[in-house]
Amino acid sequence: MGYPKDLLSSRSIIKHGLYALITPEGLVNNIIPGFENCTISILGSPRLGASFVDYIVTMHEGGKNSQGYCGEADVETFVYVLNGKVKAKAGEEEFVLEDSGYLYCPPGVKMYLENLESGDSRLFLYKQKYKPLEGKKPWTVSGHANQIEFRDYDDMHNVHIKDLLPTDIDFDMNFHILSFDPAASHPFIETHYQEHGAYLLSGEGMYNLDNEWIPVKKGDYIFMGPYVHQAAYAVGREPLAYVYSKDCNRDASLDKK
């Protein structure tokens, strides 16, 4: 990076336990055991107030995780390819994922990643503890988001959504892509039990977080905690779209956390 070229400033906003906007300019690198020739930044995490961990990963030429990622009996993982091409494995199952490709590994299944590009591949990576339900068990899921049709969101023709994982009750979370045409918005300001970690894929907008309107754009990361007000307006010339996680299919816990 070298010496600063201007006054030190940042668009990032951190409100522990409530919400966060993390912009790409301020990210620092983290060493994650098992990842070779990769640049990784931790985004959302329990230290921020999230129940999950999100990462942005740049796999350079030859980058890989040959030891496997997670695989604990109670931890599920998900990876989304922002750009590039990777070989991904869920245990012994192998997949080739290009732009918009993704892989979900259920608890107890290790995820293996290897960059197939001569340049960089960029990934959005996620893990959280699975909330078991008697008689139910999730399974490995892989696909490409650009092969899934959007459907209208809340009966609005200018806001669109797609589900990346099955909506079966076996799963305690899902990943979605939500896309707003220019000038589109949520139908109302949401206040709900669920939390989100969102990576902005395209566009610009104004996001309401805890009743503060904040400008956001492609490359930003947003953490939205439980019960925090949230809604978006899209501005600019292209859709505002983001991929995000959402906990679902489980009753509220009596634990305070």
Rank of each mutant, 00 (worst) to 15 (best):
H176Y: 13
S142P: 09
S142K: 11
P4K: 03
S118Q: 09
G101M: 12
V228F: 00
P187R: 15
P24V: 02
K87A: 10
T23K: 00
I56R: 01
A252Q: 14
F150L: 13
G84V: 03
G44Q: 04
E204V: 03
S202P: 03
F171K: 14
D170M: 06
G205P: 01
I14G: 07
E61T: 13
P106F: 05
Y19R: 03
D168P: 11
H196R: 01
E36V: 02
N37M: 08
L18S: 12
T39C: 10
P46I: 09
Y242L: 14
V53Y: 02
C248K: 06
E114G: 06
D181S: 15
E134K: 14
H16V: 06
T167V: 11
S185Q: 09
N29H: 11
I22G: 02
Q194N: 15
F78T: 14
K137V: 11
W139E: 15
N249F: 01
D154Y: 12
L201H: 05
L254G: 10
E92A: 04
I13Q: 09
C70M: 13
I22Y: 00
L43K: 02
R250K: 15
E98D: 03
G49V: 10
R250Q: 13
V216N: 02
Y244K: 01
S45L: 08
N211K: 05
A90L: 08
H176V: 10
A90C: 02
A234S: 15
S142L: 07
Y112N: 04
F52P: 05
